[in-house]
């Protein structure tokens, strides 16, 4: 498999927090969602990917290159939207385009103009008068107008109202159709990630505890609803988040493919029911199962 981003044993130490030997890979043409609670280390990871802060150790390779001698080339091929949108506040979009375009080799003014039109952003209004949503849209326009091969997005939908959030997610889904574009995005909004990601990485306390394709994750994690004594003791003891229900109990397993055979009889009798889980169920189970 071809990887656009490879991170190996990445470490960053702050007082009271350590990003602890994080490793993951982003396959070409996929969307990877980095999820985790606030303070888990998502923004630190993304800033390290952008070379905005200095790592203590480890390796970051983007397009097979590292930052030490290839920063310009890497950043020419990356589009970035940060958690906060930084622009020169008393300037207009026109000025911003003129300023930013000078740094990129492949700046496409037509694409920028189209995106600005699509987002209905005013060209001559000062950016300090923009709402948060308008600034996010402008960030996307800047990030996409130099035909990036990799988009790095840090909580792009956080703090936005539902309408604009939906617009941004639709844009990401639209981008998903472009096979040459890979996306790495962080969020703590699981619904957003679940809708658009191919691969999910889950980070807690500076460590990645899940890094898997969404389909594999969903195939492995299932909710089992069962009548009392219809499950083998071994299977029942292995369930996470077991809850008593009106007609029996329910629990979540992360080993569905391994135990599927032992559930067949119960399924036939109607004593056992299997349901798909969502990302929230998995994350809560992981936290409770620790």
């Amino acid at each position: 498999m071809d990887y656009v981003l490879e991170v190996k044993d990445l470490r960053k130490k702050y007082q009271g927090f350590t990003l602890n030997d994080v490793s993951f890979r982003l396959p070409h043409g996929t969307i990877t969602g980095l999820i985790g609670p606030n303070g888990a280390g998502k923004t630190t990871t993304i800033k390290l990917l952008m070379n905005m802060i200095r790592k203590n150790s480890g390796e970051v390779k983007i397009f097979g290159l590292d930052y030490s001698n290839n920063e310009k080339e890497i950043k020419n091929r990356i589009g970035y939207v940060g958690e906060e949108q930084y622009f020169y506040q008393n300037k207009t979009i026109k000025w911003t385009e003129k300023f930013v375009s000078g740094f990129y080799k492949n700046w496409d003014p037509e694409m920028f103009e189209n995106l600005i039109r699509k987002f209905q952003l005013p060209l001559n209004k000062k950016i300090k008068k923009f709402s948060k949503g308008m600034k996010v849209k402008l960030s996307f326009a800047v990030a996409l107008s130099h035909n990036p091969e990799l988009l790095i997005l840090d909580e792009p939908t956080s703090g936005l109202d539902p309408v604009i959030r939906r617009e941004i997610l639709d844009l990401l889904l639209e981008l998903k159709q472009k096979e040459e574009l890979s996306v790495f995005l962080s969020s703590h909004i699981t619904d957003d990630l679940f809708r658009i990601s191919d691969q999910i990485a889950y980070m807690v306390d500076g460590e990645i505890i899940i890094d898997e394709f969404k389909d594999d994750l969903l195939a492995r994690w299932k909710k089992i609803i069962f009548k009392t004594e219809s499950l083998q003791a071994e299977v029942e003891n292995g369930l996470i988040n077991v809850e008593k229900q009106l007609f029996g109990s329910s629990g979540i397993t992360d080993r569905y493919s391994e135990i599927a055979g032992s559930l067949e009889e119960g399924l036939k009798k109607g004593d056992i029911k299997i349901e798909n889980v969502n990302l929230d169920d998995i994350l809560i189970s992981l936290v409770n199962g620790e």
């Binding site: 310009k72 906060e84 506040q89 740094f103």
Partner: peptide, 15 residues
């Protein structure tokens, strides 16, 4: 500093 100019630059292709 007021506009976080160095943060803007750090996201652009400039060393």
């Amino acid at each position: 500093e007021k506009n976080n100019g160095y943060r803007i630059l750090s996201s652009l292709p400039i060393t």
